[in-house]
Amino acid sequence: MELFLQQTVNAFALGGTYALLALGLAVVFSIMGLINFAHGELMTIAGYVLMYCGLAGISFVFAVPLALLASTFAAVLMERVAFRPVRNSSGATMLVTSFAVAMILQVIFQNFISVRSQPVLLPEALSGSITIGGLVIGVNKLVAIISTVIMLIFLDRFLSKQKYGIAMRAAAEDFAVARLMGIRANTVIAGAFAISGLLAGVAAILWVSQRASVDPLMGFTPVLKAFIAAILGGLGSLRGAVAGGFLLGFIEIYLAAFLPPALQEFRDPIGLGLVVLVLLMRPNGLLPAASLKAEKV
């Protein structure tokens, strides 16, 4: 039982990180219909800021907001430079653009920073663990869970109470009508990118605090997981993205924890098989977006 609870804590921590990542993708998708595969590179940028802050002797407490600022700013810049010109093109064009942005950034990191992964100095407190009711919980797991909760509350407040948040929700529902109501497309889209950049930054800090290093290709795995989680939850639906992220985290951890040793090698295919199974039963994802007008023929 204790083992089960312990693994459940692990699943919450991992699922929370996936949820933040999936949310980052979903925020932009819900408004623009773009799956931004360069989302992972926003994480890499935040990671590099942490690394440079460490080198410059800036305390982690200040490095974190700087990293968040950097990824947010980079996301807005990315939209302005790369995505705005192709905004009215087909979904495929935007998708390919996002791949191109990701690759260009990776090569820039490799050529101008380093091909080798760079160590990131982390406060020692993050590596420790605390015992709560007999459960050993890693501090970075606790931080992951807490920051996920904070981000989810913040986002929920922002989208339901703030003017810009409401505008974004309106745009997600029907962009054309929202614009007729006087909502500026540029502001809403830039806002969506800013939020996705912020989410990428938070996820990056959690991600980097686990691996203690940053390399040019760091963003690939998380964006892949986020994509799976977003599809699982229902593309374009923010609540869906959160649900998908947590479900994916639970699937991964429980399989790693409780699959018999002989089957462990097939953990990933089994996990993805479960994802397919869920999608077979709910083709539009766990909590599909109301505006998703998927036609079945």
């Binding site: 204790e2 083992l3 312990q6 693994q7 692990n10 921590a13 991992l14 050993v136 890693g138 797991k141 991600w207 686990q210 691996r211 690939f220 795995t221 998380p222 991964e252 951890i253 790693a256 924890a257 040793p261 462990q264 090698e265 953990r267 990933d268």
Partner: peptide, 22 residues
């Protein structure tokens, strides 16, 4: 006393670690 496998690029080792710790 035990063997575990992981996937290249795996980020999360908490399940394996918890198993060893227990």
């Amino acid at each position: 006393v035990g063997k575990d496998t992981y996937t290249l690029g795996q980020q999360d080792f908490s399940a394996i670690s918890t198993r060893i710790a227990n």
